[in-house]
């Protein structure tokens, strides 16, 4: 990493639209989320308007041990032509976040939203990639033996 990660990305928002713009904008002056008092699946629902649309969203923390990053193309180092031969592009983290507010258009946020469902992968990945101990092997083979008997 050749540039500092911005750790102050407190207000990470994911909007249900594509804004064809990249760069700073006065979000806090124009985007004013309000708490609704509604709760869905234990998620506190917020409300905001963007370009005339009503958005409903919720702020979630990433699970312990995980961080979110905003990544962008690495621009600070001039690379030699030979470096790019592998078809690789260098990326850097521009911001790091622990919380994110996911905004839906029209729909209330819920645990069934694709973004939150993606979190299921964390548990699956953990189970899949956990190193297998010799104890695990033994109990697995014992099990196998018991079944074939």
């Amino acid at each position: 990493m050749c540039s500092d990660i911005n750790p102050a990305a407190e207000h990470m928002l994911m909007l249900p639209c594509c804004i064809k713009y990249n760069g700073p904008s006065p979000v806090s002056q124009y985007f004013k989320p309000k708490s609704t008092g509604i709760e869905v699946d234990g998620l506190n629902v917020k409300e905001a308007n963007f370009r005339g649309r009503k958005l409903q969203g919720t702020t979630v923390s990433l699970p312990d041990g995980y961080s979110g990053f905003v990544i962008g193309r690495k621009t600070c180092v001039k690379r030699k032509a030979s470096d790019t031969n592998g078809g690789m592009t260098a990326w850097q983290a521009n911001a790091k976040f622990r919380n994110i507010t996911i905004w839906n258009h029209d729909n209330l946020p819920s645990k069934e939203d694709a973004f939150l469902r993606a979190f299921h992968w964390f548990d699956v990945a953990k189970a899949l990639h956990k190193p297998v101990t010799s104890d695990d092997m033994e109990s697995a083979s014992n099990l196998g033996a018991a079944e074939t008997d």
């Binding site: 594509c18 804004i19 064809k20």
Partner: peptide, 8 residues
């Protein structure tokens, strides 16, 4: 203005 595209 910047173009904004919505699923709706």
């Amino acid at each position: 203005g910047v173009q904004v595209l919505w699923e709706a």
